[in-house]
Amino acid sequence: MVEKLIFLFFDVVMCAGLLWLAWRMLTTTDLFMAVVLFISFGLLMSLAWIRLNAPDVALAEASLGSGVTGALFLATLGRMQPLPAFHDFFSQKTNGVVVLLSLMITMTLSWILFSVPDGLDGLRTEALSSLPDSGVSSPVTAVLLNFRGYDTLLELVVLLTAAIGVWALGNELPTPESKPPQFLFIAVRMLIPLIFIVASYLLWIGSSKPGGAFQGGAVLAAAGILWLLAGLKLNRLCKLLYWRILLVIGPIIFSCMALIFLISNKSLLTYPAKSVGSWILLIEAGAFVSITITLIALFMGGKPNNL
């Protein structure tokens, strides 16, 4: 009973905290503060995912939603210095139509949510009962790569499209001229092997426990971002041609699999029953490489120079 009350209190405080952070983020006049609040918002969100029994989502939120996105926002702020003057939240009149629309959306959503009858199970029973045939034992990975493989294939294409879009806008943007502190070099040397192990572990464990290609790829991309922040050059890592190959290898492996299975099994992304686990691992490995490289490319904000 006491335990229940403590958890109830925790949930209420967390929800209030989320709303407060979101409100402060939008109304503050200091953009740097807004970005820092966004990162804390992401971390609080990952706690909320844990409370909602969604550890896969929590890992993705902490690494991608808060980590990589936060780094992207900070890099953008650095590239926009000095900031021109801008309107803040309160100096602008809110348009009545927008308020009306926003209220309508909120009301309609609440009405729909409260009219959902209790005791519905969604697709949970179906998903869990076909889990033994999916080749993996983690339900979320089974849905991502087997039951709803289309989503993941198109998601990889979306990532690739974003990278192409960023490259099409021009060359890599120079970050502000400042000498990176010495400890970053030491941190890079010590952290990159560790990050590599964690990322590979997340990829491997994805078939049975929370984790997978997206979380692992985001963690490995953090290593690349650290490398760039330490002022090290990427041509020490690879040439532009290899870079391009690595960007597309995930979507290509996935689409080739889809085509092969379409010809042999007469339906898209239906894996052969015996070797399904290994196919999923192969697709995940390809996706892992492409996600890592795509996220690093997105961080650079343009096509890399001097490769």
Binding site: G122, R124, A127, L128, P139, V140, V143
Partner: peptide, 8 residues
């Protein structure tokens, strides 16, 4: 175990 489909 929660419904895995919305999670995915």
């Amino acid at each position: 175990i929660a419904d895995p489909v919305p999670h995915a």
